[in-house]
C-alpha cells in the first residue's frame, strides 16, 4: 500500500461571523453596551475525512461556498481546524493566489527572490533556476523593472513560473490555470501535467469538470461543508452533473 501523504480526520471548521466586522475598540464597546454583540456561527466544514496516497491527484468540486478553498487552506497550514486532525507529510507548495507576496516597488528580479523565499525555496535553488523562471514567464528585458509597470498578464505569468519551478511533494492548486493569454494557458497547463507526472501528490480545485476528469484520479464533492460523495472521478462527476 502506498504511503499516505495527506490524512484528514473528522475535520470541522467553524467561523464566528458577526453581522458586521468589529475591528475597533469603540465598536466593541458600543455593540457590547447595546447588547448586540452576537456571533453567527458558520460551519464551513462539517466532519470531513479523507486521505490521499502518494502520487495521486484529488479533485475537489462543489458550488461556491461549499468549503473547497477552506479545505485547501487547512491543508496548507494557513488555517487551523476547529476540531479534528490533519496530517501532511512532505513539503507543500500552495498555488492558491499567485503573486500574493509581490512587492510592487521591487523589480521582477528582486520579486523572484522574495516570492521564492516566501514559498520556502533556498537561495542556491533560486539562483540555479533563475533563468528558467525568467524564460518560462517570457518576461525578457523587463526583469529589472519595478513590477508596478508590469501588465497584469506579465505579473501572473511571473507568479506562475516562480510557483511551478519546484518539484513539490504536495501541490495545491486553486484554479490558477486561467493565467495569461491562450498560449500561456496551454503552456502552464502542460507544466502542471509535467509536475503531476513527476510524482507530486496534487490537490486540485476547479469548476471546470472537463479539466477535473482529465487530471484527477479521485474526486470529492463538497456541499455546504459536507462530503456529498467521494470516489472514482467518472462516477462522482456524473452524479454532480445530474444534480
Amino acid at each position: 500500500m502506498a504511503e499516505k501523504m495527506i490524512e484528514v480526520k473528522n475535520v470541522s471548521m467553524k467561523f464566528r461571523m458577526s453581522d458586521e466586522p468589529i475591528n475597533s475598540l469603540k465598536e466593541i464597546f458600543t455593540t457590547a453596551l447595546s447588547g448586540k454583540l452576537k456571533y453567527n456561527e458558520f460551519l464551513a466544514l462539517d466532519d470531513v475525512s479523507f486521505d490521499l496516497e502518494k502520487g495521486k491527484t484529488l479533485g475537489l468540486i462543489g458550488k461556491n461556498g461549499a468549503g473547497k478553498s477552506t479545505t485547501l487552506k487547512l491543508i496548507s497550514g494557513i488555517l487551523k481546524p476547529t476540531t479534528g486532525t490533519i496530517i501532511v507529510r512532505g513539503n507543500v507548495v500552495p498555488m492558491l493566489e499567485l503573486g500574493a507576496g509581490f512587492d510592487l516597488e521591487l523589480t521582477g528580479r528582486e520579486n523572484i527572490y522574495l516570492n521564492g523565499a516566501i514559498l520556502g525555496y533556498s537561495k542556491e535553488y533560486l539562483q540555479s533556476k533563475f533563468d528558467e523562471i525568467v524564460d518560462f514567464a517570457e518576461i525578457g528585458e523587463f526583469i529589472d523593472m519595478p513590477i508596478r509597470n508590469y501588465s497584469s498578464g506579465m505579473m501572473a505569468r511571473l507568479a506562475f513560473s516562480i510557483a511551478s519551478v519546484v518539484q513539490p511533494e504536495i501541490l495545491i492548486v486553486d484554479e490558477i490555470l486561467a493565467v495569461g493569454d491562450v498560449a500561456f494557458q496551454e503552456k502552464s497547463y502542460n507544466r502542471m501535467k509535467e509536475l503531476m507526472s513527476g510524482g507530486a501528490t496534487v490537490l486540485f480545485v476547479s469548476h471546470d469538470l472537463d479539466k477535473i476528469e482529465e487530471m484527477c484520479d479521485q474526486v470529492i464533492w463538497l456541499d455546504k461543508g459536507k462530503v456529498v460523495m467521494k470516489g472514482k472521478t467518472r462516477k462522482v462527476c456524473e452524479a454532480y452533473r445530474k444534480s
Partner: peptide, 18 residues
Amino acid sequence: SFLISQLVLRDFKSKYKR
C-alpha cells in the same frame, strides 16, 4: 534565514526607493 533576509532587504529597498 533566507526568507528573513529577503524581507529585511525588501523593507530597506521599498523604504528608500524613489
